[in-house]
């Protein structure tokens, strides 16, 4: 276990040390102490390492992560795991807005609540939120899966493409072109796997969720839908 004191050594040294691990094949363990809400902690990591951040982070923690498992023992600021490619990010507390924005792969687990725009423009990432998500979540979400054990705020899945959204609680309102869809056996199987990987299988069962997806009415312009643009 390598312990890195962010307050003492600074962000640049942390990230350059983590970037230097590229090509490492042995799983190594890192611990970052004194994050104090700093930005871009462990951004751009590309190695199968296990990084634990002891405390809360600022903007863009684990941004563009590849391969690494990054655990935040606190809450995460805006844009956590933005554009993640692969690997896993697990947040014990809450996540601020834009969590998992444009993520292309990997798994983001938020054990508390996520704020607005969770999964905005997601492109393949899987996101499991144990609590609730805020307004405009999954706006223009292209692909990947969003699982919410709690409730969803206003305008869920506005202008949605092919991402699949599963919400157990209430949905305050659906965004343009987002509709509830039938839950088929393959979706239940997918959900069971996501709940398990998202460390939530003890909290919820797949049957308790509803599925939401794109009505695909905005896919090609039709004057009768003009008010939705």
């Amino acid at each position: 276990m390598q312990t890195f004191d962010l307050a003492a050594k600074g962000l640049r040294e942390l990230n350059s040390s983590l970037h230097a691990l590229k090509g490492t094949t042995n799983m190594t363990e890192w611990e970052v102490i004194n994050p104090k809400g700093a930005h871009a902690i462990a951004a751009g990591v590309d190695a199968p390492v296990d990084i634990t951040v002891r405390g809360s982070t600022g903007y863009y923690c684990a941004g563009m992560n590849k391969q690494a498992t990054i655990r935040i023992k606190g809450s995460a600021g805006p844009g956590v795991a933005e554009n993640m490619m692969s690997g896993t990010v697990i947040i014990d507390g809450d996540a601020s807005q834009y969590a998992g924005a444009t993520g292309r792969g990997g798994l983001l687990v938020i054990k508390g609540n996520a704020s607005s725009r969770c999964g905005i423009s997601m492109k393949g990432i899987d996101i499991v939120v144990h609590g609730s998500i805020g307004h405009m979540s999954c706006f223009m979400a292209q692909s990947g899966n969003m699982v919410v054990l709690g409730d969803a705020g206003d305008a869920l899945g506005d202008s949605l493409y092919e991402a699949r959204l599963f919400v157990r609680g209430s949905v305050k309102s659906l965004g343009a072109d987002c509709i509830e869809k039938e839950m088929r056996p393959e979706h239940l199987a997918l959900l069971a796997d996501l709940l398990k990987r998202g460390e939530a299988d003890h909290k919820a069962k797949p049957e308790e969720f509803k599925r939401y997806g794109s009505a695909r009415k905005l896919y090609n312009f039709n004057i009768d839908n003009a008010e939705a643009y």
């Binding site: 844009g79 834009y98 725009r117 423009s121 202008s159």
Partner: peptide, 29 residues
Amino acid sequence: GIDQRSACRHPDWTGPDDLEIKILELREI
């Protein structure tokens, strides 16, 4: 074959104070 609609704002920042943090992230990466 679908019409691609593009957003006018960035998905994860708005305004110069956030842009400063976004630039920091890109520099760090």
